[in-house]
Nucleic acid binder design. Structure first.
Length: 265
DNA sequence: AACTTAGGCAACCGCTTTAAA
DNA sequence: CTTTAAAGCGGTTGCCTAAGT
């Protein structure tokens, strides 16, 4: 479903927003089947990467960003098509509760699903589902606890598509005090399909003051169950392996709950 | 049947981070 | 050390379609 405003062509700009003087006008909007084919063939032949120069090399009148996005979200052969399954939805909910809006990290746990797809699914389905259950879709905490935060916006023409509290809180952030790659930023994107355990753990940044999120207690409990103790800030001292195991446990939470007679968290 | 409204989602935007020069 | 290019991410936009009136 390619829907985007037709090529605006309002002033040729580079993909980074810088003005370009004599570059041919870049095409925007929905991709055609022909463009898809050109891109797919080129990537199959040359491999991913060097997105900035790819359009010129491939003969596409698109910006590199657009090409990358199209490949990542649509053309990649390992993309899983079709509706989100119930177990996938369940997993998204669990992961979001822990990770917040880190869509790429969540996507890394759902083989074949893209961050964009999950983000869209969240905004259009799951956030509303939580609201209907009386839960804040951002914190997964009861909405009733927050005065003024009542009905979700129903008119997207007058409200942001994402349900957000009036005073945004920092996103839930888990910390990994010992991660060797902690804080290495965002390009350690998980490769959807590989599970992304290491990258996921590595991508988590360290900040004790952020450890007030809504997955913190989950991780703390999990860490405690593994004999890991909190530091002076109350943060569990977990390493990558522990964190990865923790996430794995989320994926089998039903089993976990059954084993430990623990209710849904 | 015609019109309006709401939902879904592909694509774009702007920013951040990292690596290379 | 500083600058710049490249890549990736989350947020947002806006078109299309289905459902409702």
């Amino acid at each position: 479903m390619a829907r985007r405003k037709p090529p605006a062509q309002h002033g040729a700009r580079s993909e980074d927003g810088q003005a370009q003087s004599t570059a041919p006008p870049l095409k925007r909007g929905p991709w055609t089947a022909e463009e898809d084919e050109v891109l797919a063939r080129f990537v199959a032949r040359e491999g991913e990467g060097r997105w900035r120069t790819l359009p010129r090399r491939a003969g596409l009148l698109r910006c590199g960003k657009s090409c990358r996005l199209r490949w990542m979200n649509y053309l990649r052969p390992d993309i899983k098509r079709g509706p989100i399954a119930e177990d996938e939805e369940d997993l998204i909910l669990r992961l979001h509760r822990v990770l917040g809006n880190r869509w790429s990290l969540i996507a890394g746990r759902l083989p074949g699903r893209t961050d964009n797809e999950i983000k869209n699914y969240w905004n259009s389905h799951l956030s509303k589902k939580l609201v209907a259950q009386g839960l804040d879709p951002r914190t997964h905490m009861p909405l009733a606890a927050a005065p003024g935060k009542t009905a979700a916006p129903t008119d997207k023409k007058t409200a942001a598509p994402t349900v957000r509290p009036p005073q945004p809180l920092p996103p839930p952030a888990l910390v990994l005090p010992t991660s060797s790659a902690a804080g290495t930023g965002r390009d350690g994107r998980d490769n959807p399909g590989d599970g992304g355990n290491d990258d996921l753990a590595a991508a988590m940044s360290v900040d004790a003051h952020d450890f007030e999120g809504f997955g913190d207690q989950l991780l703390a409990d999990y860490a405690a169950s593994r004999g890991v103790f909190n530091d002076v800030m109350g943060c569990p001292m977990v390493d990558d392996d522990t964190f990865t195991s923790f996430l794995d446990s989320l994926m089998n939470e039903r089993q976990l709950a059954a084993d430990h007679k623990v209710g849904a968290i």
